[in-house]
Design a protein around this nucleic acid. Structure first.
Length: 269
DNA sequence: ATGGTAGTTCGACTA
């Protein structure tokens, strides 16, 4: 069977609900990992997504964070939060939800930003990635197709940001963050590297400020890592930068874009 | 040029 799996940081699902549902209808993914819902569980637009044929596993946290797995292939063994997920300020945040969708098991992940190298949030980010590695290592070794998808807030290589000189000493490009991703891969996951639909590097994020998208000042920080049964089934993968394009002048606010673009993988399972 | 934009608990904080 053909299965289309996507990950998308929507930066608030309700303010841009028509942008999201429009993309779901046109791209027609079977499984979608969403991040930055920025809503409470009650505010999650369950019915609008059900109308499009999606069941949803939701880990909403209110004002910040929030992740979900949408599936047209069924939804089983939902896991809220990573086993062993570290806390920040005494709370386990809404950054991880796992689910089995028909033949594939996925996690939707929103890795902590880190704020500044050396900040407590940066240490939290590194701990979080280590907790993820431990969880992923178990499922990665199985025969079932398995992937972790989401906003990792790490650019794996220098070319994955628009100007590495501007990121000197910054988070997202530091050696420890990149090492954490390499360690994740060593646990049995390979990156599903997407095609760019324009330009050389398939950036997934462009800051709203300073015409970031228009000038292609982007970053490649949203990723898909799959185990061998998953990556062997991948036929194509791409970043849908059109979904990041600003709306037309008279478009309603609900059509405003996220600052991230979806990453899409097509599998034959 | 230390700015700019957008989301949230309406306004300081996060990204």
């Amino acid at each position: 069977m053909s299965v289309r799996i996507a990950t998308w940081n929507v930066n608030g699902i309700n303010p841009r609900i028509d942008r999201v549902t429009g993309w779901l209808q046109s791209a027609a993914p079977d499984v979608v990992c969403l991040q930055e819902l920025k809503c409470t569980p009650e505010q999650f637009p369950q019915e609008k997504l059900a109308e499009l044929g999606y069941e949803a596993a939701v880990r909403a946290g209110g004002r910040w964070n929030g992740v979900a797995v949408l599936s047209k292939l069924g939804l089983e063994d939902v896991t809220i939060d990573l086993p062993g997920q570290p806390e920040f300020d005494g709370a386990v945040e809404a950054r991880a939800v796992g689910a089995t969708c028909g033949p594939v098991r996925v996690w939707s992940l929103y890795v902590p930003n880190g704020r500044e190298v050396g900040h407590a949030h940066y240490e939290y980010k590194l701990q979080w990635l280590e907790a993820l590695r431990q969880v992923a290592a178990e499922d990665a070794s199985g025969a079932r197709p398995f992937a972790v998808l989401g906003d990792f807030n790490v650019a794996p290589k220098d070319e994955d940001v628009w100007d590495i000189a501007k990121f000197d000493g910054a988070t997202h490009v530091s050696e420890l963050e990149r090492t954490a991703l390499i360690e994740l891969q060593k646990s049995g996951l390979d990156e599903v590297y997407p095609r760019a639909l324009k330009y050389d590097i398939p950036f997934t994020f462009w800051d709203y400020r300073m015409l970031g998208f228009q000038k292609n000042k982007g970053m490649r920080i949203d990723h898909i890592y799959g185990n061998a049964p998953f990556t062997a089934a991948v036929k194509d993968a791409y970043v849908d930068r059109e979904a990041r394009r600003p709306g037309k002048k008279d478009a309603p606010p609900s059509m405003a874009p996220s600052d991230h673009a979806p990453v899409v993988a097509d599998l034959e399972l």
